[in-house]
C-alpha cells in the first residue's frame, strides 16, 4: 500500500503546487511538513486563544481558578503525605511543601498537555474532514494552552519559594532547560495519545488512572533522598522504586527540578541526561507515530 513517495522536492502543503502520493503507512516528506507547521503556527496560537476564551480561562477568576486548583491539590497532598502519612519532611516542612508544590505543578503541566492533547484530533473533526493541514498543529495548540495555564502556577510557586526561604540565584536559570524538556515530553505524549485516541476512543478514559499511578511512582509526593534513606533502612518497596526509577520518563525532569528549586544547586548530570533522553525519545516517537498516521485520520473520524 505504501509506495515510494515522490522523490522530488515537491511540496505537499505549501505553495501553489501540491502533489499527493501514497504514504499512508510511511512518513510525509519531513522538511515541507515542518516548514508548513511553522508557517501555520498562528493557527495553533489562535485556536489556543479562542478555546481559552470559550472556557473562560482568560478572565480574572478563570486565571485565579488556574492557581487555586493546583494549590488546593498541593494542600491536600501535603496533609496526606506529610501530616497523616508520618512526615516526609522531619527537618524542613517548608522545603518539602515547596518541593511538593513545584513537583505537582510541573507534573500537571506535562500530563495536562497529554490529556488535553489526547482529544485534540478527535475534536477537530470537521476541520480535519475539510482542510489539508499538518495535524500536529492541533496538539501544538493544546500544549501551548497547557503552557499558558501553567504560567500562573509558576508565579504562585515563586511566592512559596520566597516564603519558605528557598535559595534565589543563577542556579534557577536551570529551570529553562527543564521547562523545555517538560514541553518536549508534553508534546510527544500529546501526539502519541492523540493518535491512539483516533483508533481507540476510550484512550482518554484510561488516562486519569495512568496519570494518578504515574504521579505516585514519580518523585513528586516523595523525594529521591527520602526514598534512598528508607531503602537504606531495608524498605523493599523504596529499593524497587529507586531501581526502576530511571525508566520512569518523569524521574529525570522532576528530580532535576527538585535539586534546582529546593536543593539550591545545579541539577546532577545523570538526572538531566535521563530527563533529556526521555523527552527527546517521547517527542520523536510520538511525532513520528502521528505523522505516519495522520492522513488516515479523515477516514477514521
Amino acid at each position: 500500500m505504501s509506495q515510494a513517495r515522490s522523490s522530488t522536492a515537491e511540496d505537499e502543503y505549501n505553495g501553489e503546487r501540491h502533489v499527493y502520493e501514497p504514504h499512508r503507512a510511511g512518513l510525509p516528506p519531513l522538511v515541507p511538513y515542518f516548514r508548513e507547521l511553522w508557517r501555520r503556527r498562528t493557527f495553533a496560537f489562535e485556536l489556543s486563544r479562542t478555546s481559552m476564551h470559550a472556557a473562560n480561562t482568560d478572565t480574572v477568576f478563570g486565571q485565579a481558578w488556574l492557581v487555586i486548583n493546583p494549590l488546593l491539590l498541593s494542600g491536600v497532598y501535603y496533609i496526606l503525605v506529610d501530616i497523616i502519612g508520618g512526615g516526609a519532611s522531619k527537618a524542613d516542612p517548608g522545603a518539602f511543601f515547596a518541593l511538593l508544590t513545584s513537583g505537582l505543578f510541573l507534573y500537571y503541566y506535562i500530563t495536562g498537555s497529554m490529556s488535553a492533547g489526547t482529544t485534540a484530533v478527535t475534536q477537530g473533526g470537521r476541520l480535519i474532514l475539510n482542510t489539508s493541514f499538518p495535524k500536529m498543529l492541533l496538539t501544538v495548540s493544546t500544549v501551548y494552552t497547557a503552557f499558558r495555564r501553567f504560567l500562573p502556577t509558576l508565579i504562585v510557586y515563586f511566592g512559596i519559594h520566597l516564603i519558605t526561604g528557598q535559595k534565589v540565584g543563577f542556579h534557577l536559570l536551570w529551570l529553562i532547560p527543564i521547562l523545555i524538556m517538560a514541553t518536549m515530553m508534553g508534546l510527544g505524549l500529546a501526539n502519541l495519545f492523540a493518535t491512539l485516541q483516533v483508533y481507540f476512543r476510550d484512550t482518554a478514559s484510561f488516562l486519569p488512572y495512568v496519570i494518578r499511578i504515574w504521579l505516585y511512582l514519580s518523585p513528586v509526593l516523595w523525594t529521591i533522598e527520602m526514598a534512598k534513606e528508607r531503602a537504606g533502612k531495608g524498605g523493599q518497596m523504596y529499593q524497587l522504586l529507586l531501581t526502576w526509577s530511571p525508566i520512569n520518563p518523569m524521574y529525570g525532569i522532576l528530580g532535576a527540578q527538585g535539586e534546582v528549586l529546593v536543593g539550591g544547586t545545579s541539577p546532577s548530570w545523570d538526572l538531566l541526561a535521563y530527563g533529556f533522553g526521555w523527552s527527546a525519545l517521547i517527542l520523536v516517537a510520538g511525532s513520528l507515530l502521528m505523522m505516519s498516521r495522520e492522513r488516515e485520520f479523515a477516514v477514521r473520524l
Partner: peptide, 29 residues
C-alpha cells in the same frame, strides 16, 4: 484532490490554491 485523504495508489497533482467546500461545512467547533 483536496489532499485530505491520501491515495493508496496513483498520483494527484494540483496547481493552485485550493478552497474546499465539502459536505460538512466550515465550522469545526
Amino acid at each position: 484532490v483536496a489532499g485530505i485523504l491520501a491515495p493508496s495508489q496513483g498520483r494527484i497533482e494540483v496547481n493552485g490554491r485550493v478552497s474546499t467546500l465539502l459536505a460538512l461545512g466550515v465550522g469545526f467547533n
